[in-house]
Design a binder for these strands. Sequence first.
RNA 1: GCCGAAGUGGCGGAACAGGCAUACGCGCGCGACUCAAAAUCGCGUGAGGGUGACCUCAUGUGGGUUCGAUUCCCACCUUCGGCACCA
Length: 942
Amino acid sequence: MVTSSIDRYIPQEIEPKWQKRWEADGLYRSVIDESRPKHYALTMLPYPSGDLHIGHWYAMAPSDARARYMRMRGYNVLFPMGFDAFGLPAENAAIRHGIHPFKWTMSNIENMRRQLRSMGAMFDWEREAISCLPGYYKWTEWFFLKFYDAGLAYRKKSAVDFCPQCNTTLAREQVWGEDRHCERCGTPVIKKELEQWFFRITDYAEELLDFSQIDWPERVVTMQTNWIGRSEGAEVTFVSEREDPIVVFTTRPDTLWGATFMVLAPEHPLVDKLTTPECRQAVENYKFQAARQSEIERLSTEKEKTGVFTGAYAINPVNGERIPIWIADYVMMTYGTGAIMGVPSHDERDFEFAIKFGLPIIPVIDRRDGLAKSLVFPGSVRDGFADELRAAGIEFVTGPVGDVGEGLYVILHGDEQIDHYVELMRAYLLPNNWNEIVGARWIFIFDDGIQELNSVEADRRILARCKEIYPSVSHNRTVMEMLHSLPFYRDVLFHAEYGTMINSGPFTGTPGDVAVKKVTEWLEKQGIGKFAVNYRLRDWLISRQRYWGAPIPIVYCDKCGTVPVPYEDLPVLLPEDAEIPPSGENALKYHEGFLHTTCPRCGGPAERETDTMDTFLCSSWYQYAYLSPYYKEGDPAHSDSMPFDPKEGAYWLPVDVYTGGIEHATMHLIYTRFFTKVMRDLGLVDFDEPMLVLRNQGIILGEDSEKMSKSRGNVIAPDDLVEKYGADTVRAYLMFGWRWELGGPWDSQGIEGVSRFLERVWNCVLAPGYGGSEEPGEIEIRNLRRKVHQAIRKATEDMESFSFNTYIANLMELNNIMLKAKETPVYGTEAWEEAVKTLVLLLAPACPHIAEELWTRTGHPYSVHQQAWPVWDPEIAAEEIITLVVQVNGKVRDRIEVPADIAEEQAKELALSSNGAQRHTAGKTVQEVIYVPGRLVNIVVK
RNA sequence: GCCGAAGUGGCGGAACAGGCAUACGCGCGCGACUCAAAAUCGCGUGAGGGUGACCUCAUGUGGGUUCGAUUCCCACCUUCGGCACCA
């Protein structure tokens, strides 16, 4: 079996050899085979930037290994590859090097194909799909028309995010970070009012929140859930004094009685109508500022609230209170109804706004913690008050109050204490003074009685009284503003928790856990509001002002307006002779031949839409494109065409396992789910989710633990590594070095270890071993077989759970044990042959080339990649002798070797009589003996 | 601020479902081979103590549950990621 010449392991020789052979044989061609179960393994397609980097390898090589494992498990596996080929870098290259985006892209693809081949992955190249080829983007355009026909594509003028560097609008998902920068180039975006095309992804918001059919990582589910941002509440209709209904969305209808003002977004359509002549100028100025502000760079840290009064008033529908209507940029036109009710007592933002502009703040929800505070001003009470407090067990400290002397800072807990305090205060308060209790209760004690802060009216009354007594508070516009000037009170002036309703007319006393529901029901009955759900998710802005993308198949006709290009005329081709302006503007806008066309409806002159589609559209359906790339059946296309071969779809879909980076959690991974759900509703597929299982790999950092970048000079180039170590070593190291989902810094010494491992495997399999004449012992043979079968079990479990690092470690362990056995008479036995065969088979998914070479050299028929995954025999894998740990009071004191099937009583006996146990139980009483079969005996002593 | 993930030797990391912490690899030390070095092979390698058998401590920190906790619960600290005036 061993070849006579013990060649060295030279991956550079064997790898290209096998790659050629596999390709020539079509070994990885995946065709429909009803006799076998299918497995569609998909890994995210690369953008053809020109070079495959180590991150691509890290994503693809382990994915390939797993696809190969599934194949050995008997599945008919589809593992395709393609290129997400539209996008900006191609245009930038065109500007910089004067090379056409198409040429640039295709030559990059050529190079990347070579690099991908060097990986030795089982890609089925006959299913390759490139999104910038007309045969592909014809279908991307077709999807646009289908969405348009279904009412899911619409054009709207609105303020959208625009990247000045990329010269194009962006979807909300593509604007990242605190400074709201472009996901691609990092430039902070600006706002622009533009007519843009949108996809109605919000129609699917509710369904997109349902992850019950898919096994996706928790963090992706969480990110998508947060991104969609569902919140339940109510829509309530307020009416302006001039009878204009203003609808607000609130999650806290239970705080309605505390709404003391309204705020509209500056762009709200009612603003112009509501604004009174006196306020018009200020409102106009503010609107202008607000629009401009988003164009200036946003320094978003703790922006102070701004806003202006419109001069108009609305009536609070629950209590008839007349409340002012303001506009402010902290209210977004894009969320809810673009208008809010201001409840400053129970919303931090509204509180801040009300304090700044002197709007009344009335608490309407009780504090659940019962905390209240009171500041006793110096000289406001008779002597002995502090002693009374002490006697009553009331917590307080003495401290300076401004520069007027020593006061008492009192902290109260619960109604009983507060009532007692009020009593004391009434007895001790000196004439012409007042004292207030703030927090759990809102009580103002004057020398002639007490007043509660329970309405806007009370606010005015109390404030007037206070000003009378103490004129230096005269500048305050509300009671809360006055209280707010004392830092002691600040943390109890508002709270956002649920609690019993107070100061809320007939609802006063309603407990917090039912308040929202009760009020909502009542609102519905009254016809002034209704239950409502809001989402943070926005419709998907798909227009891009770029040349290098799939054209939006729309023409604009003076007579007929917006007219979709007929299906039969697809694709709308990108003109090849377009000149990319150095400004980076859209070349299509200046391409007369493209721009001017005839209206498909009336035949008159018309202009084409020059915006192209977000490249995320191309990648939203690529898993379907792979089934039958550039599908020709529907040529010319028709509304009822299929973008892929339904026979292929019926067999392969949906994707069983999807692998890729987490950075797409709220972009590609939401879009493709949306696409699939629309496709289902259009009757194109019969399932709800595109990918059943998703696993994310982490990121490989440079050796300096920093993100790899050319400027840092810490980039690891896979081509160099393949040249030095061979692809198998690179693949195995990428699987071994880190927890796959976490990634981490590259280690150029770590890969040496894996390289040594493969050399040891080579030698283990091929170099001659024991040459003596002793007969092998039965126990040694059993031990080897046990290890082999345990290794099969472990390798299988690890592959199932994507635990690639332990999968490799397990093979290293097996190899280490085999290397020892090799120097014994076990070498050459049947058990040895089984071990060698198993090692090669288990290694095949990770290191396909060396496995194929060793397989052939050990006399097996080509190909190792058509072999079945080994099966372990539980009986052979079972341990006969086990090490039983002997603990005394939970500490390991001894280890004893016992038969695996030892009886409990016997195990306990042996444990008790063991040296270690004896040492630590001597002179003590054994209280309990715990036996965990196969693991340990724990002796509890006292 | 909110949401999520992760903290284990010098390093990457392992540990079924609460049961031997540190598998596997890197690095390091010693040894063999060599005139020498590299490569390779062998042995050792969490910290501290003891001549020794052994003992004590150690999975971010502090508590708790348990016969027993890296694992479960509570609080906190650090790092990373996402969101961010979302009503």
